[in-house]
Each structure stands twice: as C-alpha cells, then as structure tokens.
Design a protein around this nucleic acid. Sequence first.
DNA 1: ATGATACTAAACATCAGATGTTTCAATTGT
DNA 2: ACAATTGAAACATCTGATGTTTAGTATCAT
Lengths: 248, 248
Amino acid sequence: MSELLYYDLKDVAGVAPSLATQVCRELGRRIVGGVVREGALIDDENKLCERFGVSKSVVREAVKLLVAKGLLEVRRGSGTRVRRRASWSLLDDDVLAWHLSVEPRPGFLNQLLEVRQVFEPSAAAWAAKSATKDQIDEIRAAQRKMENAEEIQDYVVADALFHRAVLRAANNEVLMAMEGVIFSALLSSIRLTNADPRDNKRSIPLHQKVLAAIEAQDADAAEAAMKEHLEGTRERLAQFTADESEGK
Amino acid sequence: MSELLYYDLKDVAGVAPSLATQVCRELGRRIVGGVVREGALIDDENKLCERFGVSKSVVREAVKLLVAKGLLEVRRGSGTRVRRRASWSLLDDDVLAWHLSVEPRPGFLNQLLEVRQVFEPSAAAWAAKSATKDQIDEIRAAQRKMENAEEIQDYVVADALFHRAVLRAANNEVLMAMEGVIFSALLSSIRLTNADPRDNKRSIPLHQKVLAAIEAQDADAAEAAMKEHLEGTRERLAQFTADESEGK
DNA sequence: ATGATACTAAACATCAGATGTTTCAATTGT
DNA sequence: ACAATTGAAACATCTGATGTTTAGTATCAT
C-alpha cells in the first residue's frame, strides 16, 4: 500500500485515512475513470490483496464501500463486477468527487449544472417562504464573505457556502442531501475556468438579488433571481468548454 | 443471527442476502428509526458481534456499508457514532427504504413529494426534447401496463415504471440517479393510502397527457402535464394524512 | 492546588489462515 | 449431442492474535 496513500479534501489535516478507505478510493477512481469497463469483472480478492499489498479484510471492506455506492456487485462464486453506470449513486459525494478527479468531461459538468438549474431556484423559493432568522443570517454571512474575499479561493468557497446556505434554508431534508452536487459543480467550474480572475466577483450582484428576495420573503423573486444567476453560470461554462475544444 | 434474516425488495427471490447485509439493514433501520440517537455511540464491535451472533468481520463490513451511506462515523480508539442526520445520504436507495420501513412520518413523505414536484416536470420537459424512439416506447409500454392492470399492485408498479421511464428519457445521468426517490415515494403513498381501490386508475388520463406531450416533443406541455399530475398526487396525500390524524 | 507527564483500558485496524458455500464450466458417460 | 457429475475459482465467514489511536486517570514535580 506504499504506492497508495493520498489525501482527500475530506480528510482532517494530517490524519491518514484507513487502508480500506484508500483502497476504496483507488478502485473507485479507476472504475469511474473507465479503466475497468462496466460489466467487467474486477480482479479477485487475492489479486487485489497482492496488488495493493494489503490483507483480505482490507480489500473486502473497500469492496463493500463500493458496493454501498452502487459501483460494484459481488456474487459468490462468480466474482465481483462493475455495475452499469445507471446503477451508480451519482449523487454520492465520493462518487461525484471521483468523477471530477478523473474526468472533467464537459458533458457531465453540464448535466450537473442542468440539475442545479432545476432544484436551486425552487430551493430559493422555499427559503423565502420558510427560512428562519438564523438561516438567513447564514446566507448573509456567506454573501459578506464573497464581497470581502481577497483570494480567489476564498471567493469560491464563499460562493459554495452561499448556495449551501440557501439549500439549507429551504428546510427540506431530501433537498439538503443534494448539497454535494453543489460543491462538486462548483469545484468543477473552478477547475475548468482555472479560477479565471476576470470572472472574479462577477456574480455578487446576482447573489445579492437572491438574498434580498429571501429576506423579503418574496418566493417568486427568489426563484427568478436564482434562475438568472445559474443561467449566467451555465453560459460561462459553455463559453469555456467552447474555448477548450477550439484550443485543441 | 438467527433472529435476523428478513428479505428485502432488492433480494432476488429466494436468495438470502449475506450476513453483513442483514446486519447492515438491522442497524440501518435502528438508526433511521431513531432507536439510537444522532451523535450517540453505538455498541462496540464486540457487543455487536455478541448481539447479532456473528463474527467481527461481518460486523465490520456492515459498519463500513453504513459509513459509506453517511450514517456512521468510526474513530479509532473512541468508537463508532451516528452522524447527524444532515450528513446522511438521504438519496441513497437503502436509506430511503429504511425510512419508509420504520417511519411513515407524513412530513418526510411530503418532502419527498415536494422534491418530485421539482424535478419530474423538468424531466418530462427534457424527455420531450431529447427522448429516443426506444425511450418513448418504454414510457408507452408502462402506460399500457397501467391501463391493462387488473391487480392493484400491477397498477402501482406500472405507475412507478412510467415515472422511471420518463426520468430515463430525460437523458441526464445525474437526474437518473434520483430514480430511487420515485420508487420510495410511490411505495410510501401505497402504504399510506393502503392501495385504496377508489384511487385506482384515477391518474391514467394525466399520464396519458404527459405521454402525448412527449411524443409531440412539446416540452412546455410535458412539463405542465407532469406538474398537474404531481399536484393531484400531493393533494391526495394531504387528504390521507389529514384523515389519519383525525382518526387518532 | 496545579499543571504536565505517564500509564492504561477501550476500541478500532490489520493481518493470517482455515473452512464453508456458491457458481460456472469442463469433463465424462450415455 | 446431451445430461449428469465433478472440480476449480471466488466469495463468505470464523477465529484469534497483534498493532495503533484515543480518552481518561493516576501520578509527580513544582
């Protein structure tokens, strides 16, 4: 396992994840990255032990993690195979992260953004109707952070926090489970645009509009403002992917 | 483990799930059902082994499954604790299923339906724009099945298949990952309404409307029709939960 | 008393290897 | 050809030993 051992955003600084987690990530990335195709058998437990230099327990736990995420299917006697893509838990944070770490495929990012365009405006509307004072404060705090950010990273993180705060304020647990989609989409945009300073702070007024509508408990306005904001984001994404393919 | 061993919808008929899966389900249901509270430590590995009558490997694999679903967090030395509800993967099929198997809490069902109301109309619109011939055939087949269903179960299953087919026809992978939400919501409605025969086939004309719009590639009409259908569903749910609380 | 240090028990992490069960395919007998 | 048998491959489970981390407790110097 010496070749393994990389860290992830989720790891608390300096704390190494367990071997099982590491093996899981390695396998997960390979599957998501298409190194092993859908429907194909993966190496058997012994081979995996050998390859990663770990014991069978570790491999089994790693495989179980991937089963829980819908990526693998194990069958006694016949082996363990990659499930078809449609069965993957694409909304799982890890699975999303693996996607972005191996494949900044524009099509996928686009689909991610399309989905955001569907549910975030509704979230904003619901937030306008049902947000508590604390929840509005959380949104406002993120907004301020964006305005005061000096480094581009701070700005992007504040951006993500803003959207998450809106999602939370909608007070719908199921919707809240889509938090990961926002962060992933955000991160991928960053990667694509390479945090282009030209875009810096461009979306602040639009965020402001969303916040104001929620504060005023105006659901329609909140929905419209969020929709407008995301459309802008999407146009920029389209712009960048166009540049990308042109450059090549 | 003798007391364990129950089957689930996902199990192929007659095939017993592995012990790890059984333990995972048992623990999952208890957590989701609130038997162990958020933030609380669960029994340690040895206790769990004793309680379920299985070996440590089995317990560890079960726990790993739950970690992957965001329900548990294990820390070396200190123990394994239940994560706060906000961290649970509420969109995971199993987690959803456990919710419904232990707690037909109307609030949750309502939230589930709210989310469906957000993304299914869009799915219908996208389907109108991008569905292939095969995908439309799949929708049509489900529609026919609903019309021809004689048993109430067949009707409900066909209903779910219809919605799934629309979701698939939208050709957005991320959206498709929400398939589980549809089935769960459907199942919960059944449980609540106890498959009331009065409601039988009531929604066929609305489904027909959605199908026709998709066939005609009319995105706006498809979106509107799906929205109308789901609003009806929601009203019925509200009706039943009102009856429920009144009855008590 | 107080603060820092050292010890210890609890709990998870990993390993090794034995044994059972299921599946699939090859073999064999007709 | 066809059907039944057999055996290898692969996962499932168990056992028990040993390592590591954490949190709390006891101890000791000041």
